[in-house]
């Protein structure tokens, strides 16, 4: 009996809609596979590029305890990148090809990492806001329809629970400190607030992949829903330690039980995605250099393995 592609797709859609899991060797529509490869590899790239802004402060961490925590955190990001590449490879692509796309500038990664980390307080803001937003995005992915991705996300989420706390405690400590330290914390919040809200992606009405991903159970909540949650969760945390959210339109809305907030600067969002952010070039240069400098090492290990 020959089953047409349409029938297979129909069956697949019904199966996934029933909240069942897809595993690597199962039949899947091409578009589903492509969507996953795109999303998982972008996610992996983001972890790897994300090591750079924070990595820059490991050598300058202001105490040995903070140095150890930050080193462990950035190392976790390398681990998360690795879990995600590994999940992506179950879809029949190779990590080297994915990395090549990142290095050539063809692949995208989270735009947030194209902003500079100017002061130590940025390390606090990144952990608190950027990891906060990432966790908000990632927790629903633990139930995503593609098994290897969901399993990788379970691991990532478990490990990441300390990341946000380390960021928030940096901010707390700064707010308890001197005026200079408090200013540093407020300045970091001012710079990272809007970019972290942009991390949820374009507004629902402009998001081109959302509807399909929702119906495949790759995505569980819309961009705007998650963004609203982020705002509602973060505002009280900021107030608790005396930080002011840089949004004059921010106001509690009793009726919806959440905050109303100002319009995101979408021009900036698309500029950074298009490669015109403050650090796009620098980030890719750093990754390319590491890759090129490591070429002889990777070659040597293969040559040795073949000999022995």
């Amino acid at each position: 009996m020959v089953v047409s592609q349409e029938q297979l797709t129909k069956q697949f859609n019904a199966y996934v809609a029933d909240d069942k899991k897809i595993e690597p060797k199962d039949w899947m529509p091409d578009a589903y596979r492509k969507t996953l490869v795109r999303q998982i590899s972008q996610h992996a790239h983001s972890e790897i590029i994300g090591m750079l802004p924070e990595g820059a402060w490991i050598t300058r961490a202001p105490s040995l305890k903070r140095k150890a925590i930050l080193l462990a955190k950035v190392q976790d990001e390398a681990g998360h990148g690795l879990y995600l590449y590994s999940a992506c490879e179950t879809l029949g692509v190779e990590r080297d090809d994915l990395v090549a796309d990142l290095l050539s500038g063809k692949a995208k990664y989270s735009s947030i990492f194209n902003y500079p980390s100017k002061t130590w307080a940025d390390i606090g803001a990144i952990g608190w806001l950027v990891d906060g937003a990432a966790i908000m995005n990632q927790v629903p992915l633990c139930r995503c329809s593609y098994g290897p991705y969901a399993r990788a996300m379970v691991r990532v989420c478990k490990e990441e629970s300390f990341h946000q706390r380390q960021g928030y405690t940096i901010m707390m400590e700064l707010m308890k400190g001197t005026k200079e330290q408090r200013d540093m914390a407020q300045d970091a919040l001012n710079r990272w607030w809007w970019p972290s809200l942009m991390m949820f992606g374009p507004s629902d009405k402009d998001s081109k992949h959302s509807a399909q991903s929702m119906s495949w159970n790759i995505k569980r909540f819309s961009n705007d829903e998650l963004r609203q949650r982020m705002v509602d969760m973060t505002v009280p945390q900021a107030e608790l330690i005396g930080l002011k959210i840089p949004d004059p339109d921010l106001k509690w809305n009793e009726k919806k039980g959440g905050y109303d907030f100002g319009e995101i600067n979408w021009d900036e969002f698309y500029e950074v995605i298009a490669g015109n952010g403050p650090c796009n070039e620098e980030r890719l240069e750093a990754r390319n250099k590491a890759h090129d400098d490591g070429e002889w090492v990777r070659k040597a290990a293969m040559a040795y393995a073949e000999k022995h």
Binding site: M51, G55, V74, A78, G81, L82, A286, D293, G294, V297
Partner: peptide
Amino acid sequence: AEWCGHAPILEED
């Protein structure tokens, strides 16, 4: 620690 993010391959990082 200076290596963090710059090693020849992710596993070595």
